[in-house]
Amino acid sequence: MKTIGEASTPAEVRAEAALTAVADWTGKQIGFAPASPGIASPSHRGVDSEAWLVAVDQSSPAYFLKIVNSDQKAFIDLEAVFEAASIAAGLGCTPSPRHLARDADAIVFDLLPPVWKTARMDDLRRADVMEQVIALKKAIHGSRPFALSWTVFDRIRELDDARKAAGVDRPDDLWWMLDGVEEIERAITAAGYDARPSHADGLASNIMISQDGAVQLVDFDEARNVDPLYEIGILLNEAFPFEEEMRPALEVFEGSFRQASLDRCRAYAVADDLMWGLWGMLMNSISPRGDIEFLKYAQWRLLRCRMALRHPGFELKLRRL
């Protein structure tokens, strides 16, 4: 673990700048070491930010520092992230954010103890874990609104515009996928929904599980006011390959199973796959981080989007919304 003044790489210099920006730590002994590096495939984890473990006046780290990568700044509002995480921490859903270093594009959080591990998709298939995850997300849905509202369709348009501006080659059938998702947006808009504050993240890697089975949510970069069924839809899409497996979790969320809710969850999952496919294509073209498998991740998400749009029951799902 290095201390302030010992940085020898550009990443360490950025970490030092963020840590010295924390006024409460002036004059204290600060140590820092890199956390797990980001990967996009086979697990999407830690791609948006550089992550550091931080110790203050002690040998063991007690804080987690994240510094947004330059290629992600357009998509992350750190003030909104800090506010959303603060609200969720007040509900006991996530570790508390402690310091916002705006000029360093960084936030410092409390660090969960070493007995906590990153969830995997097979963890989410356990009923006890899924029930806890849903309970945490529902608690956030009942909190006061977040600063920002958002839909997956807004982000798709933003990413597709950025893709065009960057001259990124597109798959021959991208127009067809965009048309299919436009149908989804029209159907959901016509049916209506009430946006609620949400974690708005379906990745297993942004769920933490302790040795005794407790659960916490992390990473509020995507937190917005959204349709709660978007949040549940992308969670179920991460955890389960078949709709039959999704039904019990949806029943836990709503209290009883409703086919229209499952149909909406599945429709949102299609849009979310297209969104992340576009993101991966764009990052593969413009990101300086050549060690991240952005294109592989994009191809996987677009493949799943195609499969869902081609399903013979797709149009029926939209009519049932």
Results as ranks from 00 to 15, higher is better:
P37G: 06
A84K: 04
A139Y: 01
I107M: 04
A223H: 02
G192E: 15
H44G: 05
T26N: 15
S143M: 03
A11E: 14
S86L: 02
V133T: 05
G290R: 10
R224A: 10
L159E: 00
V168M: 08
D201R: 00
T118L: 05
F109Y: 11
D105C: 11
K28Q: 13
I232R: 00
S261M: 03
R264C: 01
L303F: 09
D212Y: 06
S70L: 11
E12P: 03
D110E: 15
L282Q: 02
I76D: 11
P34G: 13
S261G: 09
V215F: 04
P114Y: 12
A127Y: 10
T151N: 11
L303C: 14
G38E: 06
L112Y: 09
G142A: 08
F257P: 01
N284H: 13
P37R: 12
G180V: 07
D110M: 05
P37C: 08
T20P: 07
P10E: 04
R264Y: 04
S285Q: 15
F253M: 13
I209M: 12
A51Q: 10
S43G: 07
E79T: 14
A33V: 08
A18F: 03
G142M: 04
K164Y: 07
D123P: 03
A204V: 03
N284P: 08
N284S: 15
E50T: 13
R258L: 15
R196A: 14
A40M: 09
G192D: 13
R196L: 13
L178Y: 07
M307D: 10
V252S: 01
K137R: 15
L111P: 02
T189N: 15
G192H: 09
A74V: 06
S86A: 11
L302V: 05
P228N: 10
I292L: 00
S210A: 13
A139F: 03
L203K: 06
T189Q: 14
G290Y: 04
A17F: 06
G313I: 02
K137W: 00
F146A: 02
D160T: 09
V47P: 03
A249N: 02
W300N: 11
W150D: 13
